[in-house]
Amino acid sequence: MKTWEEVPFAGYILEPGNAESYRTGDWRSRQKPVINQEKCTFCLLCWIYCPDGAITRRESKVEIDYYHCKGCGICAYECPSGAIRMKSEAEEA
């Protein structure tokens, strides 16, 4: 850990967005969201409703970023097509 000579000036943080390296995925207790791509209509509601930016928006599909997903279940509850289900962590995707 950094000494007082090494910590950045006045405790400023000079690496914007470096929290991205911090894993919040292990906050999920029992369940994780799983997308059924067949059912997905790419409406992007899950993407805009995720508090953690843990739904990655690709060219024409969305994916769950399990490194950050906290398993809140908003995406599954809100998906109008029933394309996202909360499954137990153990279950296969």
Partner: peptide, 12 residues
């Protein structure tokens, strides 16, 4: 874990 380092830097 960091507060004392930040404060001591200010003291120096």
């Amino acid at each position: 874990e960091y507060y004392p380092e930040i404060k001591y830097q200010q003291e120096v």
